[in-house]
Design a protein around this nucleic acid. Structure first.
Lengths: 204, 204
DNA sequence: ACTGCGGGATGACAGATGTCATACGCACGG
DNA sequence: CCGTGCGTATGACATCTGTCATCCCGCAGT
């Protein structure tokens, strides 16, 4: 058993990443041994450094922190996973848990919770904001089918039906059908609102 | 002349705010004497602590860091202003400069630039990413009129024309006219895309 | 005094979007 | 073997959106 906890920090914004590293550096028992700025560099860095805990931001280029968590969990199941995010979206929590995360923290929680979470997951505990957990349970699972989600995501940038149809190799009518059902499932009044709602819930 | 530089830190996400404080705390000559989580608390805190430099995030509840900068610049012109943001949108840089900012930093710049910027602004220098400055000049000013911007912003959440008309006390036709001209000025194909483009440029 | 521009409005029109009924094939659970 | 849900598609219909021409008012510049 080593004397310090070895942590990998994955976060794309250098200033935030290094600031978090400085924060964790203040703790006697924690050492940030690796930093990456992209989701797709997580697994390699984890292998290279023999870490105990991975601290993963969700919003990252390459792949999301959630995808990175899933891969890491598969390859190095012993590594504890702390998922960190700007947005406390219930859907994110759900997917993080499904990806094998041990802790889920939002960035507007007090900084002290970060080091605390690292220690707790290493002790085998799970760390989840109870309010968020309640919200995740209350709102239920993502009601959208894979295809609906795909179409809605593609529609988010303002593409027209014709463009969506071409991009997704579907007929225009089918695109409209999917958007229509998505709009109804999300209780929205049009695609724009549907996108907003899906985003807020972390379903996109 | 005091021996340490007194800094106010305004940033809504506690974890990031405290991490940045930890980072600045590592510098011998810098002291974070006040932290606030809302834009509208900046001026009061600045008055209360007699600060040298204010470090302002843009995305904050209460009011944006840019508005806070403008107010602070008016009330305490001696205080140097460093604007910090997640998004390197040229329009943001422009408005920050107009609000009297002395430095403009994006969060994905190296952490070392933060302390450096604090020292430089205090020495009377301006600190601006040259790439971003070029982009801001290249794209020109916000082409939207006040009303167009207002309508576009209101339309961003998926409201229908009828709802926009009611909310803004306009006729439906007028709403459509404004959206139409906004769409054309932004070279978009519909309101959704117009919103996206305006957001990307920092014009919303 | 004239001109231009922004805010506000109307009416007409074309095209995009949302809804609905209906259909076919496929996979999966009972 | 039968129902159900999903993916895909079509056609018809109603409504929403985007465009355009045209108008009025007030204000700032020249």
């Amino acid at each position: 058993m080593s004397s310090t906890i070895k942590v990998l920090l994955a976060e794309d914004q250098s200033m935030v990443r290094e600031a978090l590293a400085a924060l964790l550096g203040l703790e006697e028992d924690i050492e940030v041994v690796a930093q990456v700025a992209r989701g797709d560099e997580v697994v390699a860095a984890a292998h290279a450094h023999g870490i105990d805990v991975a601290l993963l931001d969700i919003e990252m280029p390459g792949c999301t922190g959630i995808e990175a968590a899933a891969r890491l969990h598969k390859e190095l199941p012993a590594v504890k996973l702390v998922v960190l995010t700007t947005f406390g979206r219930p859907g994110y929590l759900r997917s993080a848990m499904e990806a094998g995360a041990d802790a889920f923290l939002v960035k507007d929680a007090p900084a002290a919770q970060l080091a605390e979470a690292v220690r707790k997951v290493l002790a085998g505990e799970r760390v989840i904001d109870p309010t968020l957990a309640a919200a995740a349970l209350a709102e239920g699972a993502n009601p959208l089918t894979d295809r609906e989600r795909e179409v809605l995501r593609a529609a988010a940038d303002g593409s027209t039906n014709a463009e969506l149809a071409k991009a997704l190799h579907l007929s225009q009518g089918t695109v409209r059908n999917y958007l229509s059902t998505a709009i109804q499932k999300l209780a929205a009044r049009n695609r724009t609102e549907a996108v907003r709602i899906a985003r807020e819930k972390g379903w996109l």
